[in-house]
């Protein structure tokens, strides 16, 4: 199979949200001698971009987005050793660390935001739920992420968002990272009060806010 047809198949498999197919096609592309970076930029990234376009048009829904992101990620996993080994950088808009704050086990809103960000070309480190303040701070320090997303659903845990922001200040990291807040009890007023950089009422808006803050049109 010629390489262009192979890349087209990878794009289609990401668009269809078929992780195992993407994995085997990615391996096949490597065997065919395609450079890892080409597979990422012309296969996986193009595929997930199409997923984003379909979602914007309204023909795709959240489960399509989640499966598209999963499919892209499994391809990236195959390529990751080759990319870092070759000293090549993953082509992403920016790195995002996100998680649900300590004391809160709600994951679904955060997961949707993660999928949407991935579909929009961000690299995402998802720390999961019930994440202690120090773990957020450490991960921001380690990854030098441009964004930190803090999710809280319980009215009893929203104050943890403030605690993380204070800890970032104490660690001298606050100016290096944009902090975005989400969760049903959160609004712009709260984000302003605790000194966050942005707030989003839903996942689509989260991506818009991140793009605006990252200076991406």
């Amino acid at each position: 199979m010629d390489t262009e047809a192979l890349l087209a198949e990878i794009r289609a498999a990401v668009l269809d949200g078929e992780p195992s197919l993407v994995k085997s096609l990615t391996e096949k592309a490597l065997e065919a001698g395609l450079p890892a970076l080409t597979i990422v930029s012309e296969g996986l990234t193009e595929g997930i971009r199409s997923v984003g376009v379909e979602f914007q048009k309204g023909s795709y829904f959240l489960p399509d987005l989640v499966r598209g992101a999963q499919s892209m990620e499994i391809g990236l996993e195959v390529l990751q050793p080759l990319l870092t080994g070759a000293g090549e950088e993953m082509p992403t808009h920016a790195r995002v660390v996100l998680g649900t704050v300590h004391g809160d086990l709600h994951s679904i809103g955060k997961n949707i935001v993660a999928a949407m960000l991935k579909a929009s070309g961000f690299a995402v480190d998802d720390l999961g739920v019930n994440v202690p303040v120090e773990v957020f701070v450490e991960k921001v320090r380690e990854t030098e992420a441009g964004f930190l997303g803090l999710s809280a659903l319980l009215t009893t845990t929203v104050h943890q968002q403030e605690a993380v922001i204070k800890a970032l200040e104490a660690a001298g990291l606050r100016s290096k990272v944009k902090v975005l807040l989400g969760g049903a009890p959160i609004d712009q007023d709260w984000a302003d009060r605790v000194g966050a950089d942005g707030f989003a009422p839903d996942a689509a808006r989260a991506v818009e806010v991140a793009r605006e803050l990252a200076g991406i049109r």
Partner: peptide
């Protein structure tokens, strides 16, 4: 029910 467009 989750609204599969907005996540609400």
């Amino acid at each position: 029910v989750m609204d599969m467009r907005t996540g609400q």
